[in-house]
C-alpha cells in the first residue's frame, strides 16, 4: 500500500495533468473516484504520478453516505476497486446526501444534524468499509442553509460521527470559511471546535460570490481569508496535516497553479512543489492521455 499522504497535494484533473506532470515535490494527489474506471488502465499521466511514488487518494462524490437508503453496493465496489487500482492508503467521501426519492440533486446537500442522521451515516459508513482495504476519511461540506431540526453544531455532529465510526476527517478549510462567512460566524472559532485530532488531510480552494453568498466553487484563486484560516489551523495542530488544492474550473496557467501550491506550502511549512527543469518530465507523462 502506498504511504499516507504528506506535504502539499493537489486534486488531479485531466485539465491540469500536464502541469502536474511537470511539477516536482507533490506529496499526494486526489482523484475523483467516479471519473476512474478501475477495470481499464488509469489515465497515463495519473499512472505516472502513482508510479513515481505520489500517493493517490480516490475521492468519491456520489456515494450519498447521508442518504436514508443503503449505499448502492455497486458504487461501494467501484470505490473499493479504485482504491485497489491506485494502492490507496485512504479514500474519502462526504458527510452529505446527493439523491433521495429517486432523484439526483447533482451536488452534495447538507444533512440535518440529528441523531437520526448520525444513525444513517454510521450504517452507510459501516457498509462502505466492509469492502475497503483503505481507511475512510469523511469531509464536511459547504452548505448555504441549515435544517430547523438540527440538534448539534457541525463540530459536535462530526465529533460524534467520527467517535462512533472511527472514520478520519478530511477537513476542507475553505468549507469552514464559506460556512462561517455565510452565517456571519467566526471561522476560527468554528475550526477550533472541529475534531482536529482526527484529520487525515485537508482541502483548500477558492470560490466565488453569487446571490450574496460565498460559494466554494473551486474555480478561482484562494482568497486571503482561506490562507489565513489555514495558518490558524497550522498553529492549532501539533503535527501539520497534509494540505491539497482543489481546482475544478477556469484552470489557470501553469505558473499560477504552481504559485497557489507554493502559497499553501509557505503557510504549512511543507516543501513547496516546483517546476521540473525542461525535459525532465517523468517518462510517459507527455502523452495527453
Amino acid at each position: 500500500m502506498a504511504s499516507r499522504p504528506t506535504g502539499t497535494g493537489v486534486g488531479w484533473r485531466p485539465e491540469i495533468a500536464s502541469v502536474l506532470a511537470g511539477t516536482a515535490g507533490l506529496g499526494f494527489c486526489e482523484v475523483i473516484a467516479e471519473s476512474l474506471d478501475p477495470a481499464a488502465d488509469l489515465p497515463a499521466p495519473l499512472r505516472s504520478q502513482a508510479a513515481g511514488g505520489t500517493t493517490v487518494i480516490p475521492h468519491g462524490v456520489h456515494l450519498s453516505l447521508g442518504g436514508t437508503e443503503p449505499v448502492d453496493p455497486a458504487r461501494v465496489t467501484h470505490l473499493a476497486a479504485c482504491a485497489a487500482a491506485v494502492d490507496a492508503p485512504i479514500v474519502s467521501e462526504h458527510v452529505a446526501f446527493v439523491r433521495a426519492g429517486g432523484r439526483e440533486a447533482g451536488h452534495l446537500l447538507p444533512l440535518p444534524r440529528t441523531r437520526d442522521a448520525l444513525d444513517v451515516l454510521a450504517a452507510n459508513i459501516a457498509r462502505t468499509r466492509t469492502e475497503l482495504d483503505a481507511e475512510l476519511a469523511v469531509e464536511p461540506i459547504a452548505a448555504l442553509f441549515d435544517w430547523p431540526e438540527d440538534e448539534f453544531t457541525e463540530a459536535e455532529f462530526l465529533t460524534r460521527l467520527l467517535d462512533r465510526t472511527g472514520a478520519l476527517l478530511l477537513l476542507d478549510v475553505a468549507n469552514v470559511h464559506a460556512n462561517a462567512v455565510n452565517r456571519g460566524r467566526d471561522a476560527r472559532a468554528d475550526l477550533d471546535a472541529m475534531p482536529l485530532d482526527r484529520i487525515a488531510y485537508c482541502h483548500v480552494a477558492g470560490g466565488a460570490r453569487h446571490d450574496g453568498y460565498y460559494h466554494d466553487t473551486h474555480t478561482d484563486p484562494m482568497p486571503a481569508p482561506v490562507l489565513d484560516l489555514l495558518a490558524h489551523l497550522v498553529q492549532r495542530c501539533p503535527t501539520v496535516p497534509p494540505v491539497m488544492l482543489e481546482r475544478d474550473g477556469r484552470h489557470p496557467p501553469a505558473a499560477a497553479l504552481r504559485a497557489e501550491l507554493a502559497a499553501i506550502a509557505a503557510v504549512t511549512g511543507h516543501p513547496a512543489p516546483h517546476e521540473l527543469p525542461a525535459g525532465s518530465e517523468r517518462p510517459g507523462v507527455g502523452s495527453r492521455r
Binding site: A100, G101, L109, V120
Partner: peptide, 12 residues
C-alpha cells in the same frame, strides 16, 4: 427514519 427520508426527498 421515514421522516428523514421524506425531508430529503422533499428538499431535492
Amino acid at each position: 427514519r421515514p421522516g428523514l427520508a421524506a425531508r430529503q426527498a422533499a428538499l431535492i
